[in-house]
Design a protein around this nucleic acid. Structure first.
Lengths: 217, 217
DNA sequence: TAGATTGTTAATCGATTAACAATC
DNA sequence: TAGATTGTTAATCGATTAACAATC
């Protein structure tokens, strides 16, 4: 039995940007990187970089920095990029289609094994390697394939029902693109990816700064 | 000249979910809602709901709660949903296409006036109401139309160059879907929407909980 | 060794939660 | 009025930033 590594949520959200910076450095054949340089590349304070790393790894060398190869390996392990995660996409609309064929996902360990939709015209179609299956088969197919992750890209009113079916089939995590709060058992992990949040945040700042400009006159 | 309303960043991120809950309540012809009920609908602590609202509005009535109509109006104003925001999408791939035709965006005040791509086969095509234009015209067309927001859905290596062209054309905000940190002047607002963050966060939790399960044996 | 940079502690800052008098 | 729920203050919690002895 290992250590009960607990990583703070804000730290976890920063790890992907560290990883991307490291991969870029490796391409330039660099061996070591300092927290100071990672600050420049990612925008996170160098103190914070060191503190983040020390939550799961204390392999930095005073005077030299962090071995890029080692750090990449540790992050890949920590973020589960080595063993593939099997997922299904529910909702084969524009967004669902985009996710099915998103080029970068495979490199991150994601394997989309099926898509679902309830519209007859879409069923049977192929999106890249992924076949669109009738949505009434969600629970049974998810169970049969042992799928761990369900990606929800249906309209808001349908999302809760889809979540229930995915959970009944045995998924342990949901990636929810519908703008609605899902009610799920405690042991199910949910990540909400509501694009409205990003858009309205920007829209707010735009309106604000416009008012500031006109107030200056 | 009005008050310099400052809204804490975490608060701003919660406002869209309040708004969505309010719209749902309004459809049920409800007049008032309490912070306690909003806690149930959104998952945010009722104390926090009140504190959030009081950053920009103190119109709640002790004993009754908040007027749904009034609160919706205040939020729409605050989030800039009344006056439309003009935007362009750069990168007419799967994700760019999905965003161009995302049904909910118009209701949030977003108006996509053009899409850009540098692939000849895509130029001239129509995505819903949006025409795909040659990417070499970004700066000039953005300037001519007075576009405020640039949405970047190109591959990471191209993203910085696109950002520069959009800024040269006069956009004041960028919505960046490329997994890379953009370098921009101080007065440009950037929102990063890196889907890898969401995916890797989920993947991490999945790997962790699997280890816990096997550790229990 | 001298210089650089780590790991970690302490100081600061900000956000969340609890509590309750004010008030509709 | 009595009951409910606000607005706001105080207490807690957690995250970020600064500083520096330890060490490669």
């Amino acid at each position: 039995m290992g250590e009960p590594i607990k990583i703070a949520k804000p730290t976890l959200e920063r790890l992907p940007s560290y990883y991307q910076a490291l991969v870029r450095l490796k391409k330039e054949d660099r061996q070591y990187v300092s927290s100071r340089e990672l600050e420049e590349l990612t925008g996170w304070d160098s103190s914070q970089v060191r503190k983040d790393f020390n939550q799961f790894w204390s392999g930095g060398r005073p005077g030299r920095g962090y071995s890029i190869d080692e750090l990449i390996r540790v992050l890949e392990d920590l973020l589960g990029m080595k063993r593939p995660t099997d997922a299904v996409v529910v909702g084969a609309g524009r967004l669902g289609t985009a996710l099915c064929s998103y080029p970068g996902f495979a490199a991150l360990g994601l394997r989309i094994v099926a898509a679902f939709d309830n519209e007859a015209s879409r069923i049977g179609q192929q999106i890249g390697d992924v076949v669109v299956v009738d949505a009434c088969k969600i629970t049974s197919l998810v169970r049969r394939l042992g799928v761990q992750l369900g990606i929800i890209t249906v309209p808001a009113p349908a999302a809760q029902g889809i979540a229930d079916q995915l959970i009944a089939g045995g998924v342990r995590a949901l990636w929810n693109f519908a703008p609605i709060k899902l009610v799920v058992p405690d042991d199910i992990i949910v990540r909400n990816e509501d694009l409205a949040v990003g858009l309205l945040t920007l829209s707010h700042h735009l309106t604000r700064s416009e008012q500031e400009i006109s107030a200056q006159k």
